[in-house]
Amino acid sequence: MWLWFAKLGSPRWFYELSDKWLPWLYVSMLILMSVGLFWALLIVPEDYQQGQTIRIMYIHVPVASISLACFPLMAVAGTITLVWKMKLADMVAQSVAPIGAWFTGLALATGAIWGDQIWGTWWAWDARLTSLLIQFFLFIGVIALRSAIDSPDAAAKACAVLAIVGAINVPIIKYSVEWWNTLHQPASNFSIDPVAPNPPEVWVPLLVMISAVYVFFAIALILRTRNEILQRERRSQWVIDLVTREKNV
């Protein structure tokens, strides 16, 4: 098991393995995304209160929920960096930060557009909205911290600590709608009964979209991590060979 762990930590091994994964990921994203978007835009019936605006949910909810997964991932990668000094973990941590910032930013933006219609305001200093905004600034903070510190080792450690500490915000975002009286509604309970609130016709396409966006997240993360591997290992022989092999740039 430890051998496997050490092997997984080898950037070269990850780079070569991800070469094999990427085509599969692209294909599954294409399928899931097409089915999900088609379903969400054309098939999902109008909501009894919101009408067609329910279609915003099929973007907002997947993006927001995956934005919440980014921070714990960064915290885990940070812990591995600090304890086992695994090179790959820090590369992943560095790559996930801008993606997390994008996801959080898009969750805030789509939420604002939705809120403008449903609530009558695009922003409120609501516990859910405020804690998500804090997460956005935490991602920006992690990116800024890394570029502010010259020594890569020190930068990696500082970012890892900030990621671990900042992860405390995630349960606050998640449960804010239950702990406090917020404008944002609590999470929906899905029902298997077709004649009930939140029936399958509402949540099955949502699950398709969530999986599509998860696969997209994996692709985006792998692409950035691969670039980071190339950049940091550019003096090692295997990268030099790879550069010479690469004909069509």
């Binding site: 279609r55 973007i59 907002h60 898009l106 789509t110 403008d116 997209f216 692709i219 670039n227 690469e246």
Partner: peptide
Amino acid sequence: HIWAVYLLFAVFISYNLLQPRMVRRHFLL
């Protein structure tokens, strides 16, 4: 409202798939 959300999503997907490709291309060159 609805189309703005889907447009933002399209921008987000394309940027995050194309940007790493540009970086990679730049690195190789």
